[in-house]
Write a protein that binds this DNA or RNA. Sequence first.
DNA 1: GTAAGTTTTGGAAGAAATTGCAAGATTATT
DNA 2: AATAATCTTGCAATTTCTTCCAAAACTTAC
Lengths: 264, 264
Amino acid sequence: MQAEERQKRIEEYLQQVEFASLEELAEQVEASVSTVRRDVGLLETGGSVRRTHGGARLVNPRTDEFVFNARDTHQLAEKEVIGRLCADLVLPGQTVIIDAGTTAFHVARYLEPKKPQIITNSLPVANLFASAMMVETIVTGGVLYPRLGVLVGPVAVETLGQMHADVAIMGAGGITGDGVFNSHALLIDIQRAMMRAARKVILCLDHTKFGRRTVARLCDLAEIDVLVTDAPVGPEIAPALDAAGIEVTHPRPDPSESPLPETR
Amino acid sequence: MQAEERQKRIEEYLQQVEFASLEELAEQVEASVSTVRRDVGLLETGGSVRRTHGGARLVNPRTDEFVFNARDTHQLAEKEVIGRLCADLVLPGQTVIIDAGTTAFHVARYLEPKKPQIITNSLPVANLFASAMMVETIVTGGVLYPRLGVLVGPVAVETLGQMHADVAIMGAGGITGDGVFNSHALLIDIQRAMMRAARKVILCLDHTKFGRRTVARLCDLAEIDVLVTDAPVGPEIAPALDAAGIEVTHPRPDPSESPLPETR
DNA sequence: GTAAGTTTTGGAAGAAATTGCAAGATTATT
DNA sequence: AATAATCTTGCAATTTCTTCCAAAACTTAC
C-alpha cells in the first residue's frame, strides 16, 4: 500500500474512534508499528492528529455527541440494563417508535442488530443510526428544543399521526398508581401521538421513578403494555400495575450478574 | 494505444480508487511501469494527479459535497471563507433555509450571531444549533439517508412546502453555463422545494465546482440570486452568470497572498 | 514504398527513499 | 524504586526513482 493511502486510512480510522493505539493502527493498515509511528508523526506535522504515548488521537474530536450526555450520567448502569432488556423485546425487522429522553436512547443503542425500522423525534437517536446502513430511520419534523435535542410542535405530532408502528418505546419522569408522568409538558402531545401510533407500548423506567409524580400527566396505566425496569417494583405500585394488566420485566435478581454482551 | 488515451484512462481509474500503485496502473492500461511513471509525471504537471512513492493519488478526490466525513471535508479552508462570507449576507432575525451538504454546513457555523430562524433537513446542521438557545431551529421530517445525515423523501418535501423563508443557502456538486448540478438525485426534490420556499436563493460553491457537471441537474442559473465562492470565477462561466443576473461574491483577492494555499 | 529523422516505449544500473527490526534511552505503571 | 511498555536512533533489506540507452513506432521527405 502507498504511504499516502496508509496515512489517509489512519486518519479516517481515527475519525471513527478518536483514539487508537499504534498496534491497533498497524493492524488496521497492515503495516508495522514502526511505520505507523512514522506516519502518525507526519500527520502530526500536518496538524490533524496528535501523538500520544502508545497511540494517536484526533485533534478535533468529533463534536456530534450530544448535549444531554451530562444528564446522562444519572443511573447510567441502570439504563444500560434497561436498554438491553427492552431491546430483547423487539423482534427483528419491526417498526419501532423511540421516544426522546435518555432511557429510550439507551434502548436504541442495543437495537441495531434487530435491523428495525426506527421512527423518532430525538436527534441523539437519529445520530445514533445516521451511519447504520441496515436501519431505516424516519425522523419526525418539528421545532428543535434546545439542549434536549427533541423535535416538538405540531409538525412532529402530525407526522406521527400518519405513522403506524409495532412498538413504541417510551420514557417518562415518574409513575404512580394514578398514571404516568413526564416533566416536560410540551412533550406530552408528541408522546401521546407515539402511543396512539403503536400497537404495543413499552415504558422504560429506572426504579428511582417509582412513586414519583411530576407536573404533567402523560397517560393512564391502562395504556401501557409492558414496563421495563431495573429492579423489582415495590408494593406501593405493584398492585396498580397488576390491575392495569401491565407486564413487568426486570433483570432476574441474579447476584452473579448475567454476563450479557458488553457495551460495544 | 495512444498516449493521450492511456493518460485519460489513468485519470479515470484514479477517479474511482483515489490511490493506485504504478504497477496497478500499468496493468490497467497495459503498459510498462516506466511508461505509466512518465504519464503520471505529465498528469502531475497538469495538476489533476499527484505522484507519490510507488504510485499516484488524485488531487481532488471525488469531493462528494454531501458526505460528512465527520470533521474533515475537502477544501476546508475555502469552505470556511465561503461560510463567513455567506453568513454576512444574512440579516439578523431572518428565516434561513439551510441545505444539507458540507458547504452549507460551514455557513451555518457562522450564523449563530444573527439569531436566525433556521429551517434544515440536515442532521449535522440541526446538531450544530441543538445547544444554541437563541436560534430557533425547525427540522423537516423525513427518512434519514445513511452516511449523509440528510432527511429525504416526501415528508421532507411536504414540510418544506408549508414553509416560507427569507433566504435559502444551498450547496451543489457543480455549476456550468447550463445550470447547477448535484451528485445525489434524491436530494433534488428537496432542494427545489427549498428554493421555492425562499425569497432569495444563495448558492455556495468552492471554485473546484466550476465547470463541473454531475449526474443530476438541479436548476437553471436563473433561479439563483447570489453565488458565494472563494475565488474569482473563470471566463468559462462568468458570462453565463452575468447573463442570468447572478450577483457573485468572493473575497477580494488579497495581494499579500499570491501563492495559493496548498492542497491540504 | 523506402529511408532518414524524431518520438515513444520498455528496460537496466546506480541513487534515493521506505520499511521493518533491534538496542539503548525514555516514559508510564505498580 | 522496580518493572513494563513505548520511544528514539541507527541500520540493513527491500522497493522505488532517476537517468540513460537501445529498440520500436511513428513522421516526414524523397
